[in-house]
Design a protein around this nucleic acid. Structure first.
Lengths: 189, 189
DNA sequence: ATCGCTTTTTGTCAAATGGCAAATGATTTT
DNA sequence: AAAATCATTTGCCATTTGACAAAAAGCGAT
């Protein structure tokens, strides 16, 4: 819980009473590898914070290939805000890439926090904006680089991910085949 | 102005008095081709709405190449919300890809609207979330497709852009060289 | 129409990447 | 430990794309 408190205090000030209220709403959730946190076509029902593990965002392209578009690791929020806030179906899967331990807020509780804690909305908004911006920037920089540069960039951005998830997830994130990525890794060594 | 009113009413209800107030704050701006609406390293100072023209978001990668990461065309908002709201430097250029006519709100006026018109914040938030989500999705889908598919997809998403901006902008957006894109176009015909 | 400039197309060749299949390695189950 | 299963690496060849340079096309100013 401490990690989450620290996380949100980066985005705004809250007093002890408010922090206690937030703590009360959080529940722990163990999400085993391969299970979904939320699914495409369904409305996101919860906000999560990763205490331990790695989650990936993915979808199936028109060839039916499973494409990872993002990784989220420890001490970060997991939520499709657009789906969650507006009650519209998400267009991506959020799946545990490895066994995860999450802190979870239900939509009901999250909305209660919004109503009760005045700065909460501003904090949530800041987090959401910052995270989406980060995602746009990261993915934008994937397009115009060669595969090796993309991989090196990936290592910088996600130092704690590469050796914990299957190669195929990283390959689809980078937009190369698994065999190409394997060769790229060989050349770097 | 009518276009802008219609645009924002998609995201929430406002009465006539509120709409008038908004109209008063808007000023028209002609932005000639190649001029910047906002620049990397500087704090975004205004919100724009494109009445006519096309704007592109771009940056320089570590090889010094000019990379377009996004196009924005008529009847859409132009703003780096993260920079604008938090007064932090932007990391991208926003440039007129062709001559543009914009509706512009200064930061001061925009904040006055936030203070005066209660639903304004929620509307701005919805727009910002939706636009960023769209951007993430569009760019995500660029990585895992081959160049021809990416181009066809571009045509669908930006039917009004392709013949109005230089080929080189489209090429860097798609992550291919200008000559490759030229060949791809030839093969499609 | 012509000149000068920019943009786009094309040619040639080299390098990067993909597709497929087999081999190797790692992990789990029996 | 052996078998079964899954993940990763490698080989081979075809295809795509990039790099570079030259030609062609488009466009505005005169």
């Amino acid at each position: 819980m401490k990690e989450f408190i620290e996380y949100i205090l980066q985005f705004g000030d809250l007093n002890q009473q408010q922090l206690d209220l937030i703590s009360q709403k959080a529940t722990e959730l163990n999400l085993p590898k391969d299970e979904y946190f939320s699914e495409a076509g369904k409305i996101a029902q919860q906000v999560g914070f990763i205490l331990d593990g790695i989650v990936r965002i993915c979808y199936y392209n028109n060839k039916g290939e499973d494409i990872t578009t993002y990784f989220i690791d420890e001490n970060n929020l997991v939520v499709d805000f657009e789906s969650f806030e507006n009650d519209i179906p998400s267009n991506a899967y959020v799946q545990a890439a490895i066994d995860c331990k999450l802190l979870v807020f239900s939509k009901k509780d999250w909305r209660e926090l919004l109503d009760t804690i005045i700065p909460w909305e501003a904090i949530a908004h800041k987090i959401s904006t910052k995270k989406m911006k980060q995602k746009v920037d990261r993915r934008s920089r994937l397009v115009s680089e060669d595969a090796t540069t993309r991989y090196l960039n990936f290592l910088e951005i996600y130092p704690n991910v590469v050796n914990r998830v299957p190669l195929s997830y990283v390959a689809s994130y980078l937009g190369v085949t698994q065999s190409s990525l394997s060769r790229i890794r060989k050349n770097i060594r």
